[in-house]
Simulated scan of single mutants.
Amino acid sequence: MSVAKKDYKRITTQSLIEMKANAEKISMLTAYDFTMAGMVDAAGCDVILVGDSASNVMAGHETTLPITLDQMIYHASSVVRAVKRALVVVDLPFGSYQSDPKEALRSSIRIMKESGGHAVKLEGGSEIKDSIKKILHAGIPVMGHLGLTPQSIYKFGTYTVRAKEEAEAEKLLEDVKLLERLGCFAIVLEKIPAALAEKAAKSVNVPIIGIGAGGGVDGQVLVIHDMLGMNNEFSPRFLRRYLNLYEQMTGAIGNYVADVKSSDFPNASEQY
């Protein structure tokens, strides 16, 4: 028996848990600025992630590690000002929570107060449980992130699929259940076998959002620049491009340049 979709005027952490209970898939995309966030929100996306992937797609760094807390707050503030419906989740950047639960709480408080974001996301399981507890005890919602955790790329040494071996798969399942027990409202699983991700989703009541984790989870997330084809150098198996904006935008810019050079722009109707 199908369940009618609820028309959410504003998405909250509780909305996502209800959506999982009603077998309604959750849509999630990244955004880092006012204009893009407004379009993502207007299109009906449930969750907007202000990801530390801004380090890559906005600043051109090779990894997510260089982005700072101040920079994340700047991006998150820009996004929040555009959003009317979506839940805005903000990544805690590398170095702002791993070493000390008190530092994790201070970082989270700064994000919530200075950006107006609705929740924070942290990478890791049992290793950071004390930081997660500290943040949750302060009343700040936490989204977990397991599997391929990009902030640990130098530990992994590669961006290949995680948890293919039994020991790592078992630890992932344990961490999923731990994050639920601690009070995380949702968990991102990145680049793990689809069967394992589906098993994880069925083992907990909180939503599991996948990226490269198959279709058996409760929702999906992609980086907006990848999904729109603005980044033409990144082509993992899990990515579906819905546009090829790289070609369309460079073509349009090229036409503009040509029109300026030829004095075709501006024409008589485009001046005062």
Rank of each mutant, 00 (worst) to 15 (best):
L122R: 02
A268Q: 13
R106D: 06
L29M: 12
G215S: 09
R85M: 11
V40K: 01
K25F: 09
V80A: 13
T13E: 09
F156D: 09
P266M: 09
T64V: 15
A213R: 04
S78F: 01
V223H: 02
I135M: 10
L29G: 05
I132G: 01
I153Y: 04
I132V: 15
Q151L: 14
E174H: 12
I224E: 10
L245C: 15
R10Q: 14
A31Q: 06
G117Y: 02
V188C: 09
D100L: 14
V88A: 13
A37R: 02
E198P: 02
K164H: 04
H75S: 13
I109D: 00
K5G: 10
A186Q: 05
S77V: 04
M36S: 12
G124A: 13
S27N: 08
S27T: 11
G157D: 10
R10W: 14
I253M: 13
E62P: 01
G229H: 03
M72N: 05
I187H: 03
L189C: 14
G125F: 09
G51P: 03
I111D: 10
I132A: 06
K9Y: 04
A82C: 03
E18V: 09
A201W: 10
Y154R: 12
V3Y: 09
K25Q: 07
R85F: 05
A86S: 15
V83R: 02
A37H: 06
E233P: 00
S55A: 02
A138D: 08
V83Y: 02
L87R: 05
A21N: 06
K171F: 12
F156L: 12
V83K: 01
V217K: 08
T149Y: 01
G51C: 03
N22K: 03
S77M: 14
I48E: 09
A59P: 00
T35S: 12
V161N: 11
A138R: 01
K171E: 07
H61F: 07
N232T: 03
R241P: 01
M227N: 08
G229A: 07
Q98I: 09
M28Q: 08
K113V: 11
S235W: 11
A43K: 03
E62N: 07
A31S: 14
A119M: 08
H137Y: 10
Y242K: 02
I208P: 05
T35I: 04
Y159Q: 14
L239R: 01
Y74G: 10
A54S: 11
S263V: 00
E123G: 07
H61N: 04
K191H: 08
G124C: 11
L179Y: 05
T63A: 14
R10H: 15
D130G: 04
A43M: 15
I128S: 01
K102F: 00
P207K: 05
V57T: 14
P193Q: 06
T160G: 15
T13M: 05
Y256D: 06
I192M: 00
A169H: 03
A169K: 06
H137Q: 15
N231A: 13
V188K: 04
E270L: 07
A197P: 15
G124V: 07
I153N: 00
G117A: 15
L92K: 08
